[in-house]
């Protein structure tokens, strides 16, 4: 970063730290904070969408849809999120590659599972082997987003279900007496009314989501926890900046980051809930 960083062995303490904290590895660490924020911003609307779909599904007239939505909302919440993250991404990945394999290479009749190997033809791989690493990174990230959305969508489903039931029946009756169809009823009465009842639950969900992001590293993503562990570990002189075990400092800085994130979210959400009249 700075010109005097060429030979870290002869630097004074201050200069050493200024070089150390701006080396390539640290820049990747700082970027990973952005990754966490990006995950939150993309996952939240997706989880809300899944939650809405499932909540409508629970109230559906079609038996199978109702069963599926109920099973989704209840089973996912009965299992710790960490267990989900350990096998949902690999399941989604294999499902996608399996279907691509069936479509793209119908001529190959061998099973895709041979022993413990999972083999699809090279055209069916996603991303392709020949793709640059950044495409693999984005794909991995999208899998993570999807996994988070699936888990938190189940929580959102329940919030929405509760909120829909809180919409005063008289309003729905009024809508019906106007001759509204089911679809119209949802779009112009239930959904607009429901948000106010759902806001407290959704605020909590957002907090929950923030606090589950350290699990990203389980999904094979180089997130803040990965880099904190990697940077904090003791380094021998094979590295340019040898140092003893500093993990405690890196993790304390993560603690501060998360405290700030939740505090700011809380302030914003409080303002929002003051603006919107929330009936209890």
């Amino acid at each position: 970063m700075f010109e005097y960083c060429a030979d870290p062995d002869i630097l004074s303490t201050f200069e050493w730290f200024s070089c150390y904290l701006t080396n390539g590895k640290h820049l990747l660490f700082y970027k990973s904070f952005g990754l966490v924020l990006l995950l939150l911003i993309i996952t939240a609307p997706l989880a809300i969408l899944l939650g809405l779909l499932a909540a409508v599904g629970v109230k559906s007239k079609i038996f199978l849809l109702r069963l599926f939505s109920k099973a989704y909302a209840n089973i996912v919440r009965g299992i710790p999120d960490i267990i989900f993250f350990l096998f949902i991404p690999i399941t989604i990945d294999q499902l996608i590659e399996f279907s691509r394999h069936k479509i793209k290479c119908p001529e190959i009749t061998d099973s895709v599972w041979q022993g413990s190997d999972f083999i699809v033809c090279s055209a069916a791989k996603l991303p392709l082997n020949s793709d640059p690493q950044w495409i693999h990174d984005i794909y991995g990230f999208l899998l993570a987003v999807l996994s988070f959305a699936i888990v938190y969508g189940a929580f959102a489903a329940n919030t929405f279900y509760g909120a829909m039931n809180s919409v005063p029946p008289s309003q729905i009756e009024t809508g019906k007496s106007f001759g509204m169809s089911r679809k119209q009823l949802y779009l112009s009465v239930i959904f607009p009314q429901m948000w106010r009842y759902a806001l407290p639950g959704l605020s909590n969900l957002w907090m929950l989501l923030i606090k589950s992001t350290p699990l990203l590293f389980l999904l094979g993503i180089q997130d803040v926890v990965y880099w904190a562990r990697e940077l904090g570990g003791s380094k021998t002189s094979i590295f340019q900046y040898p140092h003893p075990d500093w993990r405690v400092w890196y993790f304390l800085s993560l603690l501060v980051f998360y405290l700030l994130l939740t505090k700011i979210s809380e302030l914003i959400l409080n303002r929002l809930s003051k603006k919107i009249y929330i009936p209890i």
Partner: peptide, 12 residues
Amino acid sequence: FRGSPLFIQFFC
């Protein structure tokens, strides 16, 4: 304790 992830709390 409510504002930070349990995971980080364990680490620290």
